[in-house]
Amino acid sequence: MITRRGLLKAFGGFIAAGFASSAYAVGVEPMLRLRTVTYRIVPPGWPTGQTLRLVALADIHACEPWMSAARIRGICEHANTLGGDIVLLLGDYLSSMRAVWGKVPPADWAAALSILKAPLGVHAVLGNHDWWDDLEAQAAGGGETFSHRMLREAGIAVYSNRAVRIETMTGAFWLAGLEDQIALRPGRQWNRGGFVGLDDLPGTLAQVTDDAPLILMAHEPDVFPRVPSRVSLTLSGHTHGGQVRLFGYSPMVPSAYGNRYAYGHVVEDGRHLCVSGGLGCSIAPIRFGSPPEIMVVELG
């Protein structure tokens, strides 16, 4: 028999559980947890004997207190211990969240990123927030953002619709990076419609001049249906794994494809995509079931 006292105890338990879950989602998972997720992939046509270990960081979203310069530096120090042949940064170094104590000066987050090291270097693309938060770049309708400049000054190669051939001890590969797919926000005089992308997939791939494997960095995964089989692997961030993820499902994903490209290793028609859950937060400083992560991909 259910008594009034029993109902009150149950209700109190639900309230306590709600407070505990909220405290974890705000104070523990986004700030205190960091995991490394590793994928081992042999894409179709990958050369026998050629190996490559990628370490990828996405969606840093520098801000106080959630992603301070000191925390970014600590994450980078840990990334340096993962034995990557190359480090890839997948965009969104800036934060647009309102629930912050303050911004991290660009010079500070760039200095933290500058400690990243790998035999084949550190390479980056930009994300939508790097464009959205740069009012001069928005007014100009393109060109270059201050994030481009800060990354270069930190010794990091920045890719804006560019492909570069890289030689390794086990074979060469191409690394390509797209400019952001929703870089320009609506509302400017020259842009009365929706978001405008500055990505050029055909132009970027046209720079590849031989049959060495090709790896593509694209901040948003929504480009993946247009990526040809010539690309061995596409790497993306942006979605944060939905930030809230239960039983492999996220109720809100910033993608036109919903959960299709929300997180993890996706294979479609023999083509491979890896979407990082990222490190920081967007809109709200909440993560539940999608802790901050560094993504490692072992190829070959």
Rank of each mutant, 00 (worst) to 15 (best):
S147P: 09
F11N: 03
S95R: 01
L8H: 02
G127D: 04
Y39R: 05
L52I: 14
G187Y: 13
A107K: 13
E144Y: 13
A107T: 12
I294N: 00
G91H: 01
L246K: 10
V26H: 01
P106C: 11
R271F: 09
V55P: 00
D59A: 06
L178D: 08
L54S: 03
L151H: 03
A218F: 12
G84H: 03
R5F: 06
L57I: 11
S276G: 14
G258Q: 14
I60G: 00
A176T: 06
C274N: 07
G241P: 12
D211L: 13
D108R: 10
G27I: 00
Y39F: 10
G127E: 12
A183D: 02
D130L: 01
G258C: 09
M150S: 12
L233Y: 03
G187V: 13
S21V: 15
Q138M: 04
V296G: 05
P47Q: 03
Y24R: 07
I166E: 08
W109I: 09
G203H: 14
G84P: 10
T170F: 07
L198K: 02
I115G: 01
R152W: 13
V37Q: 06
Y263A: 14
A99I: 15
T36I: 14
V196S: 11
L57S: 04
A256W: 05
R271C: 09
Q138I: 02
G187M: 14
G127N: 09
I156T: 09
R33E: 14
V100I: 13
L7I: 15
I286E: 04
Y39K: 02
A111F: 02
R71G: 11
L89G: 06
T239K: 13
L233F: 09
G12K: 08
G203F: 09
Y261P: 07
S236R: 03
G83M: 06
G278R: 11
K117M: 00
L198I: 03
T81V: 08
G121K: 00
D59Q: 10
A183R: 00
P65G: 03
A20W: 11
G13E: 10
E167G: 02
A107V: 10
S255T: 15
M295E: 11
T170D: 10
R35A: 08
Y263W: 14
I215L: 15
P254E: 05
I41T: 02
G18P: 06
S22P: 14
V28L: 12
L273C: 11
R5K: 14
H272T: 15
A58M: 01
E220T: 10
A107L: 03
G155Y: 03
Q189S: 15
E29A: 11
E220H: 11
E153S: 13
T168Y: 09
D211K: 14
R53Y: 06
G194C: 01
G12S: 08
C76G: 01
A172E: 12
L126W: 00
V37N: 02
V26E: 01
D210L: 02
L151V: 07
S236K: 05
P119M: 02
V87D: 04
L233H: 08
G177C: 04
V253W: 04
M97F: 03
P225E: 05
I286S: 12
R33F: 00
D222A: 08
G18L: 06
D130V: 02
G74Q: 15
Q243F: 05
H148V: 01
D211W: 09
S96Q: 09
L7A: 13
L151W: 06
